[in-house]
Every structure is written in C-alpha cells, then in structure tokens.
Design a protein around this nucleic acid. Structure first.
Length: 310
DNA sequence: AATAATGGCAACCGCCGGTTG
DNA sequence: TCAACCGGCGGTTGCCATTAT
C-alpha cells in the first residue's frame, strides 16, 4: 500500500526484550488495558514500536499464556484443525486455550510438518522438556495439565451452533479440509472479521463447482458459524459414543466409552442433545458425503446443516 | 575440546482490512 | 472519497542452545 513501516524509526530497540522492557509493557497494559499500542512509546518512553509491544504482550506477557509442553491431545487438535483450516494459525490458536498463534506455528514447523515430511504417523513422541520453561512475567501459570485437558474440558460457549459435523476418517478429513480451505480462500471478507480469507498462503480454491455454490453468502455464513463455534466441542462430538447427561445451569456433561468427559456451559441442553442426535443419525462415515477420489461433497454438508438447523 | 550442524523459538517483516478524520 | 493510521495475520529470519562429528 506504499506505507512506510512504522517499526523502522530510529531510536527504537529491536531484538530480545529485557526484563525492564517487559515490566514497562506489563505495567502499561495493566493500567490502560490492551490496545492503543502505539501510545505506549509516547506515554512510557519504552523504545519499542507498538506493533512489537503487541506481539510481546500477546505471545509472552499476557496472563494465561501457556508455553511449551504441548500435549498429545493438543497436537492432535492442531493437526485436525490444520487439516481443516490450513495455515490459519490464529484460528487454530483460538481453539487451544492459552496457546498463541506464533507458538502453534513454530510447533507446526518444527515438529508436525517434519513428521508429515517423513511420512510418519502424526503421533509425536514425548517432547523433551523445553529449555525455556520459565513462566512469563505476570503469568499465573494457570496452564491446564495434559490430563486435565483430556479428561475434563469445560467449554464456555456463548452460543451453541447446531449443525456442525466433523468428518470421521483421516482421509475424509483430508478431503474435506482441502475443499474447506478452498472455500475459505474465496470467502467474502466482510462476512467474518477473523478469516482474513484473501490473505496469501491460503489454499487456492480452484474447484469450479464449489465456486458456484460459494457465491451464496448464506452458505458461507454457515461455514463461519463453524469456525466461530468452539472447535474442541465439535472435535469431541465426533468421538462421542457414550452418554450425555444434563445438569443445572445449562451445562451438559458428556462421557464417552473411554471415560472422556466434556462439559459444555452456557448452552441449551436440548439444543445440544438434539444436535448430537442428528449427528449420530447422519451417516458421515458412509460415502454420501465424502468420496475418496472425488473430494468432499459440499452440497451434502449444506443439506445436513439445513436439516440440523431445523 | 573445538567446531559444525541442527533445532527451537522469539521477534521481525510485509501485507491486509478496518477505522478514522 | 481518500489518505493515514492501527491492529492483526502469516511468513520468515536470526539468535542461541544443544547435539553430532
């Protein structure tokens, strides 16, 4: 756009942050809250550009940021989300509490992508202890343990989004992912703030059949509902073969055969139950939606979404 | 023990869309 | 309407620790 970079001004520090700089930034955010990054330089004398401050805060100083020790469950989720979303790290990170897009991106490039390149299974070996396992300043280190993450995920959901299905097999996921990636790449930008769908690096959507369908914004909004919904929930629903029970305060508890327990807060229990039933009834594992050699049947998914909405 | 190669990750860079005056 | 600014994103770089030779 022809604008000169704002972080190239003279007198601004670059490189690793010092403890003092961290403290100044943390103090500023404590008082003024997030945002207004460009004011930090003026108001605190911190010799960092606003952009750099935001990055430092988001990836390191922000309370609740988890660093290192990505669990197997988190890795599985990353893999599945990446299949679905491609290199949309911020979206993926949004489904992993406490994880940042930068960390997931780094983790992907240093671990998962390598495994994929060597045709190994996406099950990683236990990771050696991160040499930089230092809790960030101001962090309460409220990171969930791996077992907590697996055995009891409590999902605060402001809005339940019925009508979401997850594919079942790796092959199906892969096909669906490719089509979804193409779908998202062509999405109208005004329907979803976070999608950044026209960005570089997204899979290109070159499927003519899809492109016709995708001109209908209604369908696109359905997909954005999927993305806006709580992915861990969707991810788990796919695996639910056990029982569900309702509790007070709009909380639904779901236990699968392996003892996997998930509770969903803030949702209408009946909505969840009905949606789960529809998911169970829908034959997503059969070939009515995904053809190994034909790719994902977009219309089938849309039909399914419609039926679930009703 | 010294050096080279590799890995991990924090931080930078450039681009983009949204907002504002 | 438009230019400038801002926040956010994904890609890439470069530093430093670790491992291999």
């Amino acid at each position: 756009m022809g604008r000169k970079p704002r972080c190239s001004e003279d007198g601004l520090n670059k490189g690793a942050w010092t403890p003092l700089e961290n403290e100044m930034l943390a103090d500023y955010v404590k008082i003024h809250g997030e945002g207004k990054w460009s004011n930090i330089v003026k108001e605190t004398g911190l010799k960092r550009c606003g952009k750099s401050c935001r990055l430092r805060w988001m990836n390191y100083l922000r309370p609740g940021v988890k660093r290192g020790n990505i669990s197997d469950d988190e890795e599985d989720l990353i893999i599945r989300l990446h299949k679905l979303l491609g290199n949309r790290w911020s979206l993926i990170a949004g489904r992993l509490p406490g994880r940042t897009d930068n960390e997931i991106k780094n983790y992907w490039h240093t671990n998962i992508a390598k495994k994929a390149a060597t045709h190994s299974q996406p099950r990683r070996k236990p990771r050696s202890v991160d040499r930089k396992q230092v809790a960030p300043a101001g962090s309460e280190n409220g990171a969930e343990t791996s077992s907590n993450f697996k055995n009891h995920q409590t999902i605060e959901s402001q809005c339940c989004t019925p009508g979401v299905a997850a594919p079942t097999t790796a092959l199906q996921e892969n096909n669906m992912a490719q089509d979804l990636a193409g779908t998202l790449a062509m999405a109208p930008s005004n329907t979803h703030k976070e999608n950044g769908s026209s960005r570089k690096g997204l899979a290109s959507g070159d499927d003519d059949n899809l492109s016709n369908i995708l001109t209908d914004f209604h369908y696109m909004e359905d997909f954005y509902k999927i993305l806006d919904s709580d992915y861990p929930k969707l991810n788990d629903i796919n695996d639910i073969t056990g029982t569900a029970s309702h509790h007070s305060n709009n909380t639904i508890q779901v236990d699968d055969e392996d003892g996997y327990s998930m509770s969903i807060n803030g949702c209408n229990p009946r909505e969840i139950a009905e949606f789960s039933e529809k998911l169970m009834e829908a034959d997503w594992t059969s070939d009515n939606c995904v053809q190994p050699d034909q790719g994902f049947d977009f219309m089938s998914l849309l039909s399914f979404l419609d039926s679930a909405d009703q």
